[in-house]
Write a protein that binds this DNA or RNA. Structure first.
Lengths: 128, 128
DNA sequence: ATGAAACCTCATCCTACTAGAGGGTCAAGA
DNA sequence: TCTTGACCCTCTAGTAGGATGAGGTTTCAT
């Protein structure tokens, strides 16, 4: 598999695949005679794991830790639990923040209906 | 007012105040004999406006536009309305994303209860 | 006079990519 | 055989919104 195909299959961009390699998240694949990267199934699995983790909002550092854990199937699950718990707490905090934000802005009303800035509710709300 | 005091009053960090000046969001204040920045009320108002806008999640580019608008009280309010509307849409999108995320992760259950990675629900969920 | 706290500039780092320059490889069609 | 176009390569620099640190000055209280 060349990089274009693995990118398509994982849903990553080509540049991102190379970036993950440079970051050490995936092992460097072998190269073809023309210096093209050639991927196999294990790369596909690993890149899919990363993509899915990123989609769920884990940071690359968290992904790194999760990959390290998944590389050792007989290791303890506790750390994975911990990472997930921290992440859920983070999501809940962001949700609370955004909800508060949303309701604060909602108070501005649907539209301002003023014609000039001097009477604009949006600008006014930001000024005090 | 020196930078430390204006930082305290606005809730910004000192470095952030200087950063906003470098970005052209606030005019450069006059300097004391010892080259210290000396702020007045107008800086305080402007930096507070920025802080409040940032707290509400506007990007610096949006803040720039809002400041430009508020500098012209006789100008049209329509653009401010537009910026706010775009921002609200963005917040709603993020809320939807985070909510979806949260419910997906919630399916993993409270804790994994497995002891080894091979049986860990977290790792398993990320693998497929 | 001295020591601490506050200030200064300038440079570098952070996340997680993204974009672009400038060039090489490869298969198919004319 | 030549060429065209799609694909690939490396390397550098840029993005938002600051944070951090080095190395040096100023101010103020004792």
């Amino acid at each position: 598999m060349k990089i274009g195909e693995i990118a398509k299959r994982t849903g990553l961009k080509i540049e991102t695949v190379r970036f993950y390699e440079a970051e050490g998240l995936v092992p460097a694949p072998i190269r073809s005679g023309g210096n093209y990267r050639l991927y196999d199934r294990s790369h596909l699995d690993r890149l899919s794991f990363i993509k899915r983790s990123r989609d769920l909002g884990f940071t690359l550092d968290q992904v790194r830790a999760l990959l390290r854990l998944s590389d050792d199937p007989r290791g303890s699950c506790a750390e994975a639990d911990q990472i997930a718990a921290v992440h859920i707490a983070e999501i809940d905090r962001k949700l609370a923040d955004l909800t508060a934000l949303r309701s604060e802005i909602a108070q501005w009303g649907d539209t301002c209906n003023a014609s000039i800035v001097a009477e604009c509710k949006v600008i006014d709300a930001l000024s005090h």
